[in-house]
Design a protein around this nucleic acid. Sequence first.
DNA 1: CACGTGATGTCAGAGGCTGTCATCACTACA
DNA 2: TGTAGTGATGACAGCCTCTGACATCACGTG
Lengths: 204, 204
Amino acid sequence: MGRWEPDARGRLARAALDLYAERGYEQTTVADIAQRAGVTERTFFRHFTDKREVLFDPSLTLQETMVAAIAAAPADRTPVETVVGALQTAVAMLEERRDWSRRRAAVIAANPSLLERELLKLAALATAAGAALRARGVREPRASLAAETGVTAFKVGFEHWVGEPPAQDEAVQEPESPARTLADHIGEALDEIRALTATPRPLG
Amino acid sequence: MGRWEPDARGRLARAALDLYAERGYEQTTVADIAQRAGVTERTFFRHFTDKREVLFDPSLTLQETMVAAIAAAPADRTPVETVVGALQTAVAMLEERRDWSRRRAAVIAANPSLLERELLKLAALATAAGAALRARGVREPRASLAAETGVTAFKVGFEHWVGEPPAQDEAVQEPESPARTLADHIGEALDEIRALTATPRPLG
DNA sequence: CACGTGATGTCAGAGGCTGTCATCACTACA
DNA sequence: TGTAGTGATGACAGCCTCTGACATCACGTG
């Protein structure tokens, strides 16, 4: 399994994020990334289908974890709660990579081209969640809409979590105000959505 | 204003949709489209920023109409109702182009690359709706979430409208079952979302 | 009928991405 | 010990998307 330098894929992903952050996505060529990673341009395209995809490596794992969690969820939950709970579980892998998430989010926000890809990943997540709900007997259009709503909560919660100022020194923080986790933010986003749509219609 | 053959932009857009439908998006080169439209490849890129954008020409108009309708909406409406109502107004331009919408939807559904662009347009629509709500005094995160929810209703409603079997011969249809308009579908989608999130939490 | 204004044509080139074949590191097995 | 197999990588060649720069053409204006 080991060849020349191990983990070419990881080196490429790190080099790409670094370069995108340093000089911008469009100003970075795939040849630049490959060179910094010590491989050929051709090798980059063997590991990642795209110049964009290199930023979205963990997304498939996230999706698979979520689907598994939906399948394993207790049966007495609302579809939306099932999806959100599964996402809160799956998101554990991101909690450990907050700095990476933050840098990545900054790069994506600066490039419509990358934003596009992120939206596609979120849509795929919603599609997968919908399918997983249907496999549990939830019917259309309930399954799809619950999936969309759950993913919206994830999206909003993730944005808040990433946007929150980083804990500079955990020891200096007041110990009785624990940092809000990503899972917390997702739960709060769902509450906001609930409050919003629960608003009674004022006139007609 | 008139030059060589008029409406090069329109010819390009029609040629592109035809070719994408005939032989597929990836199998069509920009040179092919330009040739069928009777112009140069370079001219294509003067009218459209890229090979995908040629399918999304009316999206900006739709967005502007929606924003104007939000600004002009009666003050006694819920944010979500404001957005959905504005979209129902803006969507009039699509009602007249159902065949075009259907063909376009089929092409987009067949190409992740195009789906990506569509998602970006929907995200832009939601962003614009959120800004328009904020201009009316709606605060965050209510504005953004209402915008997202409204656009979701639009998306789902549009999909149903496009997926509905086309009225083969209007005269043969039973006159007392009028075809459901796109606006109808959008309204129904909103109702579905309401019903979904209004579901009481079963356990704790 | 000269001139300005836009839209178009022409050309050159960078960069993304793919197919193809050779090469290399490592493993398994004789 | 060496020999064949396997999988990742390198080395080209080439198509296509997209852009910049400059020339050209149609049309309106004076």
